[in-house]
Simulated assay, not measured.
Amino acid sequence: MIPGHTKFICDSFFGHIKKTYRNQKVNTVDDIEDIVNNSSKGNEGLRYNGGIGWKWFDFQNFFSKNNFINLPHITKYHHFRFSNLSEDLGKVYCSKNSGGVEICHKLLRDDNNFNINEKLDILDVMHISEERKKYLYQKIRQHIEDPYKDVYYL
């Protein structure tokens, strides 16, 4: 398909959420969770609970320390294939068309120093800043209905 006209299954799930959201009043995070859960059988709201059960991996550090190279002219390709063969470590095969001629690009500068079993670093959870709390109180709270104004924006 041409760029911008893809058929990605997640897009349809977001579409269901948007349809349900359009006709609802939203005052709390509970309301958003209900909208997601009621939008379709395939959607399930997962709540962020102060970092419990969530892991944020530091991909930026991983890619920079392992010296990965940016893929040149990435926007001209529409199909990407990776292989798990040892000789294909750090390589991506790209083509402009489905079933088209594949061009191999090496993305890893030095595959001799790359450890495929290395664990990604986990980032610490950053709590909401006082500045952000103040912004939410001043700019967002006014749009919340009265019984819910102080539920999350104290």
Rank of each mutant, 00 (worst) to 15 (best):
K96F: 10
H105P: 05
N66M: 03
L123R: 04
Q142E: 06
Y148F: 14
Y153I: 06
G99A: 13
L154E: 13
R109T: 13
G4Y: 09
I52T: 11
G53Y: 05
I17H: 00
K134N: 07
I144Y: 05
G100M: 04
P3W: 01
F63D: 04
R47K: 06
E33D: 01
I69K: 15
N49Q: 13
G50M: 07
I128W: 03
N97L: 10
N66Q: 07
K41Q: 08
D110A: 08
F59H: 11
K76V: 09
E131M: 13
T20M: 10
G90T: 01
V36P: 05
S39Y: 04
R47N: 02
I103F: 11
Y148S: 03
V29P: 00
E118T: 06
H143C: 05
I103A: 04
I32P: 00
G42W: 07
K106D: 14
K19N: 15
E33C: 08
I140S: 04
I35L: 00
N97H: 03
V26D: 03
T28N: 09
I128Y: 02
F59L: 14
G45L: 06
M126D: 10
G45D: 01
I74T: 10
L120G: 01
D11T: 10
H143V: 03
T6K: 01
N97Y: 12
G51R: 00
F114G: 00
V36E: 01
F63Q: 03
G4W: 11
I52A: 12
G42L: 06
V101Y: 08
N113H: 03
G42N: 13
D124N: 15
I103W: 09
R141G: 03
N23I: 04
I2F: 10
N27G: 14
D124Y: 06
L154Q: 11
T6M: 03
I9F: 07
S98Y: 07
L120K: 01
N38Y: 01
N115P: 02
L85V: 00
G4Q: 07
D11E: 15
I144V: 15
I116E: 03
D111P: 09
N84T: 06
L89M: 13
G4N: 12
K19D: 14
Q142D: 08
Y93I: 01
Y153D: 06
F62K: 05
N38T: 02
D121K: 14
Y77D: 03
N23A: 13
M126H: 12
G4H: 09
P3I: 02
P3H: 05
I2D: 06
K96C: 04
N117L: 10
